[in-house]
Nucleic acid binder design. Structure first.
Lengths: 343, 343
DNA sequence: GACTTTAAAGAAATCGTTTACTTCCGCGAG
DNA sequence: CTCGCGGAAGTAAACGATTTCTTTAAAGTC
């Protein structure tokens, strides 16, 4: 490995001067600086990040802890986070696939020593263990997570409000027997969406809740669709807790020769890009995931720079929006599919 | 920050003993080790990664350089890389959005000091500048890239073969006027796919090439579709250089009341998850992107561990497969959509 | 022309670990 | 009883950068 010492020797200066020339700090005579930079280039000198962070106390890296990397949901999130990080000159250390809490805790441990801050999405009911495993000084922002104990700056999508709005939309459209395909047990977002669905039904003119099990995968949506097709008293509308399940359900309904939206209306949640392209296009709740990631990183960056706990407005809730398309009976909006793309 | 020294003080031992206890190296009496671990836990001690990598010369981190993070293509790639990295205890430093070569070069520079190896996808015609910007000792693997000068271990999708096979498939099905929506100028994969398309047409019974501009975005596919719809002599088949453009084209055709596949057949490339769900389902070329990423990381890991240049079989070409669905006139395979999902 | 001021470069301390080397102690063997 | 040996813990020297002090030299000032 070529170190600062090698560059110094070749440029016939001290290592201090090399440091100043390379980093553009302090005063260096232009002639010398040129000589140093030339030497660095010729030797392919690359400063050792570890040595640097050792003395400066900064890694210029933030960790991104995700439960999974499957599907467009996470890719959008990463994209948003990355954009904000790049803007601030921060690097992104991505970590994923954490089934159990203990697995996640050890992943956090491994991350902790190499980052200036952490962005964590922990879908379980209680994300408190993350804070426990961390040095208390490490700035942390949670995404779509909730802690029971020590509170922590958090960004959430308004799952409850979105689910309630969607259910109300279906009621307004005249549907009365509305089923819900729920997300996995113990998942915060799944719970909130279910709660929103229930809240909208309560006191409305619609029939009581019909809840069908699911786990956010397309496969489980497919099975739910089959179950619904086999039911004696079929619902007239289905609200799936996410788009992937709605798509799976749609396939099952098509196979059972049940027409959407004529025989049964269908709606999802998330507005993944795919939602616009299935037929009929899927009515869904749009949560701008990329923006969620972007904002989360900006909040984290502020925490890192300020060093102040910044406990103002600990949880921030991002608004969502009901997007009405063909699957809930709307007239097909011709150009919507392509027009929505370049966002 | 709490350091190893703080732990040592609290446990009333030397820092060497703390290091041994924490890392499970060397001999430590069980009683002492327990005392040390307890102290570490109570203080929320986290070893400083920089200091560690300074002495060990290892960061246990690899860089992943991507041109973009848009769409399922990259999310699949990251997923594959991540899985392999996790298996080997490596962390992933993701870097993206590199329009120009100089931008990419400086991004590589920033990465270089903090990683043990680099995985780079550089879609331009010549990725040689990546190697130039790097210390020659840093293990590097290229993805879907080509260098003119110094060669470098590379993994590629068989773009040429896939495009040729797809074009032949269309010819075999009886189509004669086959248009191609190409990817961006100067993009290696776009060029190869175009070449494959041309190669299949040459000497066949089909009409000469009809090439329409595109840039891999859905939007450009939409415009291409409009252009085709407006043509006097319409082709009877369209082969888009990737699925996103095929989908955009499909939307334009639908708006122009041109039926697929009845009036014109349509095919794409990549087999993104979305391809199964549009209607009609899209005939495409499947390249298993997640596996590509996984293999690339394994190759890189071998390079890192071996320290040997390992110039055996410098470029590895991954096979692809034509997936025939409804958009090229196949009978709709009922359960294919959902069945293909849990891969 | 001597003394003060200032710009530029070097010497050395420092950051938090790991690890080779040293020290200490107790125990068994001769 | 003494010597040697080995296990366990401590000491100190790296690792590669940044940065504070010094030092040096040159330029002003009177």
């Amino acid at each position: 490995m070529v170190t600062i010492r090698d560059v110094a020797r070749r440029a016939r200066v001290s290592i201090a001067t090399v440091s100043r020339a390379v980093n553009n700090t302090g005063k260096v005579r232009p002639e010398i600086r040129e000589r140093v930079l030339r030497a660095a280039r010729q030797l392919h000198y690359t400063p050792h990040g570890g040595a640097r962070s050792l003395i400066s106390g900064r890694t210029h890296t933030v960790g991104l802890l995700l439960p999974d990397l499957h599907g467009e949901y996470f890719s959008e999130l990463i994209r948003g986070v990355d954009r904000a990080a790049r803007r601030r000159g921060l690097h992104l250390l991505v970590s994923s696939s954490h089934g159990s809490a203990s697995e996640a805790a050890s992943a956090v441990q491994a991350l902790a020593g190499r980052i200036d801050g952490l962005l964590a999405m922990v879908p379980g009911e209680d994300a408190g263990f993350i804070k426990e495993a961390l040095p208390p000084t490490l700035p942390t922002v949670l995404l779509n997570s909730r802690t029971s104990g020590a509170h922590c700056p958090t960004l959430l999508v308004d799952d409850f409000g979105g689910a309630r709005a969607m259910t109300r939309h279906l009621i307004d459209r005249g549907y009365r027997r509305i089923a819900h395909i729920r997300g996995p047990e113990g998942n915060l977002q799944a719970g909130e969406r279910l709660r929103g669905y229930r809240a909208a039904l309560k006191g409305s003119r619609a029939a009581p809740p019909i809840v069908i099990e699911g786990d956010f995968t397309e496969e489980s949506g497919y099975r739910a669709g089959q179950a619904i097709a086999a039911r004696a008293a079929r619902p007239d509308a289905i609200f799936a807790a996410n788009d992937m399940m709605a798509v799976g359900c749609l396939v099952a309904l098509r196979e059972a020769r049940i027409r959407v939206p004529k025989d049964v209306a269908l709606a999802g949640f998330d507005d993944i890009p795919l939602a616009r392209f299935v037929s009929p296009p899927l009515t869904t709740v749009r949560a701008d995931i990329a923006t969620l990631g972007l904002r989360a990183l900006e909040r984290l960056a502020a925490l890192i720079e300020a060093k102040a706990p910044s406990d103002t407005r600990s949880a921030e809730r991002l608004p969502v929006e009901v997007v009405v398309r063909g699957s809930s009976g709307a007239a097909p909006a011709a150009r919507e599919a392509a027009a929505g793309l370049p966002r």
